[in-house]
């Protein structure tokens, strides 16, 4: 769940923003002053920060400067100050976006999402186990840094096993996951593929990754 810090001294607006974030399956943290907000930031990291400018004590501008000394977390300033100079100055000192009050909740949400989207790193679709790395995008499997050179079916079988490391698969289930077709009862086919994968692995490592269960099923050896 994404944690969002809401620094806003008006308790009604603060509660309204938090409620919206809750509904969007995010985890809001209210802070009612810049100092309080910075305190939370020392304790945990947030995915995005909503920052009011007119705060008691430390101003929003000062808070923003301190936030920027700490981290690069996206900050969206929410303020009644609609002066173009203020807006430009804030964007130049490190705000990522600026929303003027009164605001529409949908716009706030859209802008938060935009920031989250920017910061979410492109997920590398890789599965690793011990010395084995399976790349779901490239369809390659590396063991101890060497490529295994699996066929498409062998790769699919390995991927299926790795994705559900605790589950014992019947031969039919593996067959269907590997071929995405209807099973015709050819257990031997699966046996052959498993033994091919094993022998390819054996050329590189002694480690066993696939466990045979009772002679009738297979499981990933965690």
């Amino acid at each position: 769940m994404k944690k969002i810090l809401v620094i806003e001294d008006n308790s009604e607006i603060n509660a309204m923003l938090c409620e919206m974030l809750h509904k969007e399956d995010m985890e809001p943290q209210s802070a009612f002053s810049g100092t309080e907000g910075l305190l939370y930031m020392e304790q945990e990291s947030f995915a995005c920060i909503l920052l009011d400018l007119m705060l008691p004590g430390k101003s929003g501008e000062e808070t923003l400067l301190e936030i920027r000394k700490m981290c690069k977390t996206p900050v969206i300033v929410i303020s009644a100050k609609n002066d173009i100079d203020v807006r430009v100055a804030l964007l130049e000192t490190g705000a990522d976006d600026y929303i003027t009050k009164p605001f529409d909740l949908r716009e706030v949400m859209a802008r938060i999402r935009l920031q989250l989207h920017k910061t979410t790193p492109v997920e590398v679709k890789r599965l690793t186990a011990g010395n084995l790395v399976l790349d779901q995008e490239q369809h390659t499997v590396m063991v101890c840094g060497k490529e295994l050179g699996l066929t498409r079916q062998e790769f699919n079988i390995l991927e299926t096993l790795m994705l559900n490391p605790k589950k014992v698969f019947t031969k039919q289930e593996l067959f269907e996951s590997a071929w995405e077709e209807y099973y015709i009862g050819a257990d031997k086919t699966i046996n052959v593929h498993i033994s091919n994968i094993r022998s390819k692995m054996k050329q590189i490592t002694e480690e066993e990754y696939i466990e045979t269960i009772w002679g009738i099923g297979f499981r990933w050896r965690a």
Binding site: F169, T170, K171, Q172, W214, I216, G217
Partner: peptide, 20 residues
Amino acid sequence: CENLFSFYEDFKNREIEPKV
């Protein structure tokens, strides 16, 4: 097969490997 595997942990706990 599916039913047997649903008892996998139970067999393990009893330290019995079924002959299938």
